[in-house]
Design a protein around this nucleic acid. Structure first.
Length: 887
RNA sequence: GCCGGAGUGGCGGAACUGGUAGACGCGCGGGACUCAAAAUCCCGUGGGGGAAACCCCGUGGGGGUUCGACUCCCCCCUCCGGCACCA
């Protein structure tokens, strides 16, 4: 009979489950189920996933006046399947979500898809499948995988960025920004792959080559749309100081990215021409030492000032530099060419030659540099190469520099020389004084420069959000009227990856000018996909809203995100863009928050050791046998441990792990093996250990089922001996797990303390027959199940039910520890002599120093070390250490 | 080059504000159960010495502060990450 049921369960699990559940409408009576002697993860997990779904256990609504908690994990790109990095990321988020739910917060925990992007187009080119089909198939599969992990998402809020219902609001924001002059078009230099005939993002250029076809990437001037992130440079920098919940290193990377420099702008007149050149310098104190000037090859003044007989050479030089590509430029040796023109130092009147140099960037400062070879290493190298004069204006303490003998620039502080009225001053002082003098004379001013550039968002790609602009011969670039949004990305296109953009097909491009009604053309560029992910956390507020990007009331309740969790690889780009968007959306009057993410957790990578054969390169685990390569039999080298990647063949398929051990074990291991911030070494034996632990917990309940139910628990009697100890450990475990989750996200130590409690329960010294024993035991087991639930929710729910609880665990409050129970009356004090541990004594917790000293001095071992020596002093740390200092 | 982070048993990692270094897990060794195996349960497990009680050494290396240092300070070594001609 039993065997038959088992067989039935194995073959028809979902069906049987459905019938059991529907009869009880969520309140499933486990007596309808065959008793599972062994821990069968799959059955338990299917059962509870179904119950959660049927009861919308994790859907959330706004409740004004109730404490909210918005926990968010970076949404994935639907690349096909989830990987272990996702599993780890979402397991961490789920612990946070479930914990704060049990703590009574109104928790918002949504999930969605960052679903525009290049891989979809590559799939189209390689396999002939349409990007949309490919993407939606992947979403479908990955969603199943996430559900199989039992993650507590409110799936009703799911967001998909490639859906017109989503990206129309990208376009809406774009139009709003355009109105404010924050979205604008300008000619700029881009990475261009001549073989793919398309623009590449900086990240898609690897060592100067196209990541896809390995052609040399060129620089090309193109009209591109930009967002004025630089308007927010100062605020983005300043607000990094208002984010104490962010890791310091991420804030630092963001500060470096914005790259604020203070200095001065100085105006140089060009000899014999009606032109001036502005330079930016952080070292106005070195102005008297400027011996030449360097211009960026793109600088507009070059054409106007270059001597006619040098024009050819200058132009040749410029086109050579440009052909080298952005990357090549960075690596090339410093080079330049003389324009034949001279400019005048506004303070000294000195005439200095003007060069064009390959290392000067048009995008930074003013695109022109006053060169001070004595005090700037780049200028020094340039001066040496072209035999230009070196003038020292700052001497280090007690040394007089000789320009002819210098082998490098002196860039530190010192005393001014050769600087007219500033001689003898400290250079830091001169820095201010010279800037003041420039302002006084009207030939310069104090100034600030940022490394941050405006965000170029145009992409010559198909699978992205169309930029809502129409080009009219008469009216110019005209924004698409709001009522015509969304500009739908046409789907009936063929994608070859060659030649023109698929969007150039006439049915998309040909349109009428919204302003004058004449024939016009649509913009065929799409937006950078980072635009999609810059505000998705706002769309979760009201994903079905058809009138606005999000509901303001919802946003004012839920924003900001209380805890954001994701990979460190987004430390700059995504997180900077999202911060920028939040501020821009705030300035549109839609939200109050200045910052999107209050707390940020950057989880480490998931790593695994790599296997290598000297002849066949990286090997899969199954390609090596007994330490040898299956192909050639050569010995395989194991290690080092590196980030999982397909090319290194050290990935682990989550499907396989879940199939073998279950979702709970998979989650538990990824949380136990390392704290979230650190890299995690994947280790199959470790997974086995987590599985064993869950089996141990399972048995703890099932083997004691008879004594664990059927009575009310209330410990109102005093406890003694091991019962008291177990009771204390139960409460100290509650305390520790709570603190570890809440304060530090140290899930690994939280889990280990639950393991310790379970170990103690296996060491139970009594009979479990007496009422008191049963009460203490049950209290401990309940605590184990409750504390384990954020990490391994399915098995916890199942055991919770088996303990006879009528309501599901997901709606049960988090346990609270009893401070009286945690307190212990006897403590062990370590006795040291001169800082070395010599003995241990047990004393009452509230004992004073004199009392402890009395006990300590009676100890034989102590006497041995102290004997015949003079006691200088004693130190007592209450309840911890008693240190005797002798001689 | 500049800016960060990290070095602890055979391995992953504990040790929160200086107070018993190595919790917990893996691995390994031993035992129990079994005809046997698997599973499970129990014991042991930093190195060295000792029969034992105990003792010595140990947190990348070297110095320092302190009654006491994985923890604080100085110098050095190694590994990882970010930025990289930003004037």
């Amino acid at each position: 009979m039993f065997g038959q049921i088992r067989e039935l369960v194995q073959h028809t699990v979902p069906v049987l489950r459905l019938s059991c559940l529907s009869a009880q409408a969520g309140k499933l009576d486990f007596r309808l189920w065959p008793i599972m002697e062994r821990y069968e993860s799959k059955e338990v997990e299917f059962k509870w996933q179904k119950i959660w779904a049927d009861n919308s256990a994790f859907s959330t609504v706004r409740e004004d006046g109730r404490d909210k908690y918005y926990v968010l994990e970076m949404f994935p790109y639907p690349s096909g399947k989830i990987h272990m990095g996702h599993v780890r990321n979402y397991a961490i988020g789920d612990v946070v979500s479930r914990f704060f739910t049990m703590k009574g917060k109104n928790v918002l925990h949504p999930m969605g898809w960052d679903s525009f992007g290049l891989p979809a187009e590559n799939a189209a080119i390689q396999h002939g499948i349409h990007p949309a089909e490919w993407t939606y198939k992947n979403i479908d599969y990955m969603k199943k995988q996430l559900k199989r992990l039992g993650l507590s998402y409110d799936w009703e809020r799911e967001v998909t960025t490639c859906a017109p219902e989503y990206y129309r609001w990208n376009q809406w924001f774009f139009l709003k920004f355009m109105e404010k002059g924050m979205a604008y078009k300008k000619l700029s230099t881009v990475n261009w792959c001549p073989a793919c005939s398309t623009v590449l993002a900086n990240e898609q250029v690897e060592g100067g080559l196209c990541w896809r076809c390995e052609s040399t990437v060129e620089e090309k001037e193109l009209e591109q749309w930009f967002l004025k992130i630089t308007d927010y440079g100062e605020e983005l920098l300043e607000h990094t100081r208002k984010l104490p919940g962010w890791p310091e290193r991420v804030l630092l990377m963001q500060r470096n990215w914005v790259g604020k420099s203070t200095g001065a702008e100085v105006v140089f007149k060009v000899e014999g021409a009606d032109e001036t050149i502005k330079v930016f310098t952080t070292r106005p104190d070195t102005l008297y030492g400027a011996t030449f000037m360097s211009l960026a090859p793109e600088h507009p003044v070059i054409e106007k000032i270059t001597a006619p007989d040098r024009l050819r050479g200058v132009r040749e030089f410029i086109s050579r530099v440009k052909a080298g590509g952005k990357k090549g430029r960075g690596e090339a040796e410093k080079e330049g060419v003389f324009t034949g023109a001279f400019s005048t130092n506004p303070l000294t009147g000195a005439k200095i030659p003007v060069y064009v140099a390959n290392f000067v960037l048009m995008e930074y400062g003013t695109g022109a540099v006053m060169a001070v070879p004595a005090h700037d290493q780049r200028d020094f190298e340039f001066a040496k190469k072209y035999n230009l004069p070196v003038t020292v204006v700052i001497n280090p303490p007690k040394i007089i520099l000789d320009p002819a003998a210098m082998i490098a620039a002196y860039q530190d502080e010192g005393t001014m020389v050769n600087s007219g009225p500033f001689d003898g001053m400290k250079n830091t002082e001169a820095m201010v004084k010279i800037a003041e003098l420039l302002e006084e004379r009207g030939v310069g001013k104090r100034s600030v420069s940022y490394r941050l550039r405006d965000w170029g968002i145009s992409r010559q790609r198909y699978w992205g959000c169309p930029i809502p602009v129409i080009y009219c011969g008469a009216c110019g670039a005209v924004p698409v009227p709001y009522k015509d949004l969304p500009v739908i990305l046409p789907e009936d296109v063929s994608i070859t990856g060659k030649g023109m953009s698929p969007l150039l097909l006439s049915s998309f491009v040909d349109t009428k000018c919204p302003r004058c009604g004449k024939g016009a053309r649509r913009e065929t560029d799409t937006m950078d996909t980072f635009v999609d992910s810059s505000w998705y956390f706002l769309r979760y507020m009201s994903p079905q809203n058809n009138n606005e990007p999000f509901d303001k009331k919802e946003a004012s309740y839920w924003m900001p995100v209380d805890q954001y969790i994701g990979g460190i690889e987004h430390a700059v780009l995504h997180l900077l863009y999202a911060r920028f968007f939040t501020k821009a959306v705030r300035d549109l009057g839609l939200i109050q928050a200045d910052e999107p993410f209050k707390n940020l957790l950057t989880q480490g990578m998931v790593c695994k050791e790599i296997l290598r054969c000297p002849g066949h390169g990286y090997l899969l685990p199954e390609e090596a046998e007994g330490g040898r390569c299956r192909e050639c039999g050569k010995p395989v080298t194991v290690g080092p441990t590196e980030k999982m990647s397909k090319s290194k063949k050290n990935t682990v398929d989550p499907d396989r792990i879940i199939e073998t051990y279950g979702a709970d074990t998979t989650r538990l291991f990824s949380l136990f093996a390392a704290p979230p911030q650190k890299d995690l070494d994947w280790n199959e034996d470790g997974v086995e250990g987590s599985f064993r632990f869950l089996g141990r917990v399972w048995r703890l309940v099932s083997e004691n089922a008879d004594i664990l139910s059927g009575f009310d628990f209330k410990h109102d009697k005093p406890l003694e001996g091991f019962l008291r100890r177990i009771h204390r450990q139960t409460h100290s475990t509650i305390k520790k797990v709570t603190q570890d989750i809440e304060e530090r996200f140290h899930f690994n130590t939280a889990i280990s303390s639950i393991m310790e409690l379970v170990n103690s329960l296996y060491q139970w010294e009594g009979t479990k027959q007496g009422a008191l024993e049963r009460e203490v035991f049950r209290e401990a087991v309940e605590a184990v199940v409750l504390l384990l639930s954020p990490f391994a929710p399915h098995i916890s729910e199942e055991l919770w039910q088996r303990l006879g609880n009528p309501t599901p665990l997901y709606s049960t409050p988090w346990p609270v520890f009893d401070p009286d129970a945690v307190r212990s009356e006897e403590v062990t004090v370590v006795v040291q002599v001169n800082g070395k541990v010599r003995a241990k004594v047990s004393v009452p917790a509230d004992a004073g120093k004199e009392y402890v000293e009395g006990v300590v001095m009676k100890e034989q071992l102590v006497a041995k070390w102290v004997a015949a020596k003079e006691i200088r002093t004693t130190v007592y740390v209450p309840g911890r250490i008693f240190n005797i200092v002798v001689q």
